[in-house]
Design a binder for these strands. Structure first.
Lengths: 158, 158
DNA sequence: TGAATCAGTGGGTCTTCACCCACTATAGGG
DNA sequence: CCCTATAGTGGGTGAAGACCCACTGATTCA
């Protein structure tokens, strides 16, 4: 019975490991931190990626819409958009129909950047999910998707 | 074809939803925040729960061991242990074999508290995982466990 | 018994992140 | 036209979290 593990000195408490939410938070946090670190090397933050993704996926839109969609603070978005604009990844123009609004659109450079960031994110994901084979990863993703949009009353920052 | 969804204004970008790690981080973050909020109402933090869990699961041990196990900063642990001690949830005594060490043990009140905190954590988990049936939750948990200890080179705070 | 090491503690710092307020400019209804 | 509401912006604040340094007391070894 060598399987009577003598509990290594760095093993986490079974009480915590028994909670799926603990594992969710722990693993998600590590993955997020890893990606954030890689983005930081290029002077980017996770919000930059989220904004680019929203623009690529849903097309040009007002900052107001990005605020709704991503749950970001309007003031913070202004800063993100400002930085992305200065770097040439997005363009901002006054909406002629409603000149209060600033319509944001992604440039070709922005699309290229997002593609590269997504590749990096997938690389991180491959590392994190290394113990799972492709079929298992699909199952995991499916379950997470169900959790995500199966709960309307969950509010959280992206 | 009513299923040609017109993309609700608060839908997240598919580019992000396609990343399991994004969902991991988002869901885990929400669950963690929810539990932390409930603990805060009682003047407790997540570290308190982690320390109690380690003591209950592995028995009395020196702070040094808790530091290793939980990856907490020694100085921070001193404060947590101090507070838990003052509230009567743990007892601290100098280890007679090595009087540098402070052996920490959980009291009956501490055990009762942990049981209650775990119940709260499970309640939060039930809310979060509501879209999944019991069998699916078991699958999810199994996959997360595999990810967790299938990756030795992942370092992250509890 | 001196020197080096280790456990624990107190008191900080630094960064991150969400959040909020005041202000400008524009829109639209009465 | 005024009045209210909305879009965006700049400049903050405040809390949380991890981390770090200096110091005490105890241990171990030579």
């Amino acid at each position: 019975m060598a399987s009577e593990n003598p509990a290594p000195p760095d093993a986490l408490p079974p009480t915590l490991l028994g909670l799926s939410t603990f594992l969710l938070a722990r693993i998600g946090r590590a993955a997020r931190a890893e990606l954030a670190g890689q983005l930081a090397e290029r002077g980017l933050r996770l919000w930059d990626m989220a904004v680019l993704a929203a623009l690529v996926d849903f097309g040009p839109q007002a900052q107001r819409d990005l605020v709704r969609r991503l749950g970001i603070d309007p003031s913070d978005l202004a800063k993100v958009a400002d930085q992305l604009g200065a770097a040439g990844y997005v363009e901002r123009s006054r909406d002629q129909a409603d000149r209060r609004r600033v319509s944001v659109s992604v440039t070709a450079e922005g699309r290229a950047l997002l593609a590269e960031l997504e590749a990096r994110a997938r690389a991180v994901q491959d590392e994190v999910l290394a113990p799972l084979d492709p079929a298992e990863r699909r199952v995991l993703h499916e379950l997470l998707l169900r959790v995500e949009h199966g709960s309307p009353e969950w509010r959280a920052p992206a």
